[in-house]
Design a protein around this nucleic acid. Structure first.
Length: 214
DNA sequence: AAATCGGGGTA
DNA sequence: TACCCAGATTT
């Protein structure tokens, strides 16, 4: 692992202490089900929108069993403001009819409808504090900027890279992954990242390149 | 690995 | 209206 990688990890962990965002589903004691529901909703949906419906949703649907007993229309109504409600309601219903409990193995979780690598890994890392990497568009953007060509192209190599970046323990990996998402959302924006304010601007390939262009 | 999908956001 | 986008799914 490169010096830059080690430094980025340390800097991000330091940044995490002050800047990490608080959401209900990020509570340390949030259950597997609660975290799963959140991650399931958070794809392609702003966190603040999810926050608006999340408490009420958990109130009405406190378990897979409850979803199983309810009608899909109620499910649709509860998540309507989020968009993708039909797709998501159908998938949740299908999950609830086939499972009493959520699987805790990444591959098994990933086999559920509309649950891909991101949702599965994020759920297990955040809920069970497993040392598992997460790779979404934010993560790809951040690593591409900071590490340039050293960040690989293929999904499998990216997952391996992200895994190497994780700190030693599951607890730390959870903090690191949360910080990585927030860093991508709050500092390393898709367009016009806040390089002047960023802890990595001294060694990030993108920021250094910008400085050289001046 | 690349193409496709469904649907929300944006120019 | 047309295009873009993120993640999942399909080929």
């Amino acid at each position: 692992m490169s010096e830059t990688a080690i430094r980025f990890r340390e800097d991000l962990m330091t940044w995490a202490k002050g800047e990490i965002r608080e959401y209900p589903w990020r509570a340390p004691d949030a259950s597997l089900y609660e975290v799963f529901v959140a991650e399931f909703f958070l794809t392609q949906t702003p966190a603040d929108n999810v926050a608006d419906v999340y408490p009420e949703f958990l109130d009405e649907f406190d378990s897979l069993a409850t979803i199983d007993e309810s009608h899909e229309d109620e499910l649709v109504a509860a998540i309507e403001p989020l968009g993708f409600h039909n797709m998501r309601a159908e998938a949740l219903k299908r999950i609830a009819t086939n499972h009493d409990e959520l699987p805790t193995e990444p591959e098994r979780l990933r086999s559920l409808p509309r649950v891909g690598p991101y949702v599965a890994n994020a759920t297990l890392c955040f809920a069970l504090k497993r040392r598992i990497p997460i790779v979404d568009r934010n993560v790809v953007r951040v690593y591409e900027r900071v590490f340039g060509d050293a960040f690989p192209q293929s999904d499998s190599a990216r997952e391996a890279f992200a895994e190497e970046m994780l700190p030693a323990t599951g607890e730390e990996a959870r903090t690191y992954n949360l910080a990585l998402l927030d860093f991508g959302a709050l500092v390393c924006h898709k367009r016009s990242p806040d390089c002047p304010v960023c802890f990595a601007s001294g060694y990030c390939e993108y920021a250094v390149g910008l400085a050289e262009d001046q």
